Computed example of a mutant assay.
Amino acid sequence: MKELSKGYNIVGLSQGSLIGRGIVEFCEGAPPVRNLISVAAPQAGVASIPLNAGGTTVRTIANSIMKAGAYSDYAQKRFAPTGYIKLPKLYILFWQNIKGYLKSCKFLPKLNNERPNDRNPAYKKRFSSLKNLVLIMNENDTTIRPKESSWFGYYEDGSTKKVLQPREVPSSCNSLSYTPKVYIDFTSGLYCSQKNRFISSCFNNSTPVSLLLVRQLRHDGHMLDSVSTNGNVTNSQFNLQTKLYMEDWIGLKKLDKAGRVKFIKVEGNHLQISGAELLHYIIPYLQ
């Protein structure tokens, strides 16, 4: 379209954000997308059928299909959510797990460049050309499981308990927006409020602490927890991020290093966003 020849912006809601990202990555020679704003989207997949996928009858049918085989050709061709279902655990009855996802899921493995022998550099080049990527996560989202998928975070393979972070925590807190504000040792009551200092420099390593719970209080919409059993906090304890980010399959890390990714957390359940948050987090990227 001539009207879009100089570029345009996309706002995607939930699975619509995946379609928007598909336009960015898959459409060769298309008008450039400047800003992609993603609201409560399953960017890294979901571990179950979304709870609000229609009425009671639709949910019942959807979950039955899930149990019968989300990665079957029948389900993949007929039920949109199966295109981004990513089951981290092995379901023995139907042999569905990450291997099944990579082999038979039609949409998300391609979009995220997850197949080791079929990664397309063009997808990464197009995605990393965005001027801004705005990732908005609902803090109490019960539809996207895990909710961190809205930030490209996801469960560790084989688990539905440990969520891998969507981005790298740097050895120096100056390069990214994980700037420490306040750290609290809830066991001994120690306290540190020194900006731009990593936690290991805020505490005396000789302090006898049996269990140290370190929390980075909310900053730029993000919370970060870590547990140490010996009182020595090191960078390695924070480096539990996804391979998609570490190996930069789609250019997310490149965008982030350039300061073009905004990780935003808002209160509420799936797709709940206030007028004030809309004006603050979305409208500026449409102008």
Rank of each mutant, 00 (worst) to 15 (best):
M1G: 15
K2A: 11
L4P: 04
S5C: 06
Y8S: 11
L13T: 01
L13E: 07
G16K: 03
I19W: 10
G20N: 12
G22P: 01
C27E: 13
C27A: 13
E28R: 04
G29H: 10
A30Q: 10
V33C: 11
R34E: 14
L36D: 10
Q43F: 01
G45V: 03
I49Q: 00
R59C: 06
T60V: 02
S64Q: 00
M66L: 09
G69Y: 09
G69K: 07
Y71S: 09
A75Q: 04
P81A: 00
T82V: 08
G83L: 04
I85V: 08
K86E: 07
K86R: 15
L90K: 11
N97V: 04
G100I: 11
K103S: 14
K106I: 10
L108Q: 03
R115D: 03
D118N: 12
N120V: 09
P121H: 06
K125L: 04
S128M: 09
L130F: 14
N132E: 15
L135W: 08
L135P: 06
I136R: 05
N138I: 02
E139M: 07
D141K: 10
T142Y: 09
T142Q: 11
R145Y: 01
S149H: 03
W151K: 04
F152V: 06
Y154A: 08
Y155K: 01
D157E: 14
K161N: 06
L164K: 07
R167L: 10
V169I: 15
S172D: 12
C173Q: 04
C173F: 08
Y178V: 11
Y178F: 13
I184P: 00
I184W: 08
D185M: 00
T187L: 02
S188T: 12
G189M: 02
Y191L: 02
C192D: 10
C192E: 05
N196D: 14
S201L: 10
C202H: 00
T207E: 14
T207H: 10
V209S: 09
S210W: 07
L211D: 07
L211Y: 06
L212Y: 05
L213G: 00
D220R: 13
H222R: 13
S226G: 09
S236Q: 15
L240A: 05
T242F: 02
L244G: 11
K253N: 13
D256Q: 07
A258Y: 02
K262Y: 15
F263V: 03
K265F: 07
V266E: 05
N269P: 06
L271S: 00
Q272A: 06
A276Y: 12
E277Y: 05
H280N: 14
